[in-house]
Write a protein that binds this DNA or RNA. Sequence first.
DNA 1: ACGTAAGGCTTACGCCGTAAGTCTCCTCCG
DNA 2: CGGAGGAGACTTACGGCGTAAGCCTTACGT
Lengths: 255, 255
Amino acid sequence: MTSPQTASPQTAGAAPRTTLTRARVLESAVALADRDGLGALTMRSLAKELGIEAMSLYHHVANKEDLLDGVVDLVAAEIQDAVAALEPLPADAPPSAWKPAMRRQILTARSVLLRHPWAPTVLETRKSFSLHVVRYFDSLLALMRRGGFSYDLVHHAMHALGSRALGFSQELFEPDGAAAGSAAGGLPEAGAEDETVAMLEQMAEQVPHLVEMLAEVAHEQPGSTLGWCDDQTEFEFGLDLLLDGLDRLAADGRR
Amino acid sequence: MTSPQTASPQTAGAAPRTTLTRARVLESAVALADRDGLGALTMRSLAKELGIEAMSLYHHVANKEDLLDGVVDLVAAEIQDAVAALEPLPADAPPSAWKPAMRRQILTARSVLLRHPWAPTVLETRKSFSLHVVRYFDSLLALMRRGGFSYDLVHHAMHALGSRALGFSQELFEPDGAAAGSAAGGLPEAGAEDETVAMLEQMAEQVPHLVEMLAEVAHEQPGSTLGWCDDQTEFEFGLDLLLDGLDRLAADGRR
DNA sequence: ACGTAAGGCTTACGCCGTAAGTCTCCTCCG
DNA sequence: CGGAGGAGACTTACGGCGTAAGCCTTACGT
């Protein structure tokens, strides 16, 4: 793997070291977190794991946030691989096939996350989604579209499922914080959100359904550019979905 | 509020300072987190807020974890107060009244949490629930029981609602981590879990439904003392509840 | 009146992330 | 083939964190 094979005996002539790449750093970080927990993942301990000094890591990651971004992306890629290995829906499947297919994808994602129990926590703290995560979401949207969902319903559905869609049960879309913070505003504000928009548009072909949904949902709500949805409405939608379902089960019991 | 009213002029004769109590420390911590965010809540900054030195805080809280425990408890108490202010269910309400009543409680809890956006994050990291949180849960259980739920269904329901029951959308019961860790075991193991059991039994009269539910659910699952439930089963239960509900909505659209 | 302990303060330690600077090769170009 | 340049390691150091350990004052109970 070294560029030429002159392994550079160095002073003492230790192993070639394979020169260390960002990929190797991220893989080590995942392994370390898997083994010793998220708390054990520090720049110093990761460096020790790799046999280098802490500061050397900064040649491959910008800072710790970037490291965590990369680590999440790696796990998301693992999920995507697992999902891609499933049999695809046959082209002539009926609309109702969306449900078992989606169930399978979500449980597959979950099986991967069970190997990285710390990942949800990290995922939650990211400011923007990794490409792999977004693509995975897009595949779920595609399934719902085939089930005959309007984009509006798809949108509510993603909120209701929340992070369950990724195989665990924490909320990905920020719980309340940021939305509450910018609730007063409403217009562009030219901040990091614009970058998000630009990024999304740029990967339009990679995540067609997502982009289309955003376009549709965005312009039917007057005040919101990407703020982006009414958290209260979404919360109540998901809540009612659950309460209604539970009530049905309870009513069966009462009968 | 000082024991006698001799306000102790001290050396320079500043304000009486009301002597500082655990309650005042916790209230300040909540205020600080509300104002500057969770990241700004450090022992040093909290001390500065109170006009004392960091180490002095340790006379009122055991350590930072204990501080956070207390802060969560304070927020939970605020939720309980808000819920208690709602009109109680009339004694002759029909079973079906559980649903709107529960909805109201949950949305009330949410309205409190919107004032403390950092609280869910902290709540999630607690090792055990505060008394106020547990009592709030018990009140939800009580409503479901009046709706004719079996304890088994109540149990599934709490998992499915997850932290939505507290007004936000993150999972309270640990996502996967601890359960996966002790999956191999199964029997008592005489660790912190025993303390939890003892504590729960001790407050049996404060949270009757919860205790009863635990008793019932526990002995019908062979391998688990308080490990405590099959996460996979609960995950699938909640997932199916949502998928079924969504499918119903989508089918309406298709029609 | 005095012992005592509650509740402040000071100092110091070992972690953390990371800014800044240095040294040592490898690679590429003339 | 020789020297420039840069990539990628290392060293040192800083400020912030939680908190262990110890000191000093003050107020209260006896």
